[in-house]
């Protein structure tokens, strides 16, 4: 079961991650509810991006934001903090 994981000789010393931001753990499946952004209503204030305790919200090239569903644990902080209430928590 564990064979797909690296041995202790292969894991970087002290578990250092030399490529930060790259997901080692996919924590998206811990989630019960997921945030869904209504991009029509979004004012691109980045409050959600700022408040997200993980880097699970990315800023896109067009100036908007998107959720990284592979990582987002569904804590709901973004939905609670959004000043225009454009983030809804839905099952999944």
């Amino acid at each position: 079961m564990m064979s797909k994981f690296p041995t202790y000789k292969e894991v970087p010393i002290a578990g250092n991650i030399y490529d930060p931001g790259k997901l080692v753990y996919k924590t998206g499946d811990w989630r019960t509810f997921k945030p869904v952004i209504d991009h029509e209503k979004c004012i691109k204030c980045y409050i959600c991006w700022l408040y997200c305790p993980e880097p699970s919200i990315d800023r896109t090239k067009d100036g908007g934001v998107e959720i990284n569903y592979e990582q987002c644990k569904g804590c709901g902080i973004c939905a609670a903090e959004c000043p225009v209430k454009c983030i809804e928590m839905v099952k999944g």
Partner: peptide, 15 residues
């Protein structure tokens, strides 16, 4: 780089 990141049962023992 990230140091001291959380490690679950699948990595902790190796460290």
């Amino acid at each position: 780089m990230t140091v001291g990141a959380g490690n679950n049962p699948d990595y902790y023992y190796e460290l």
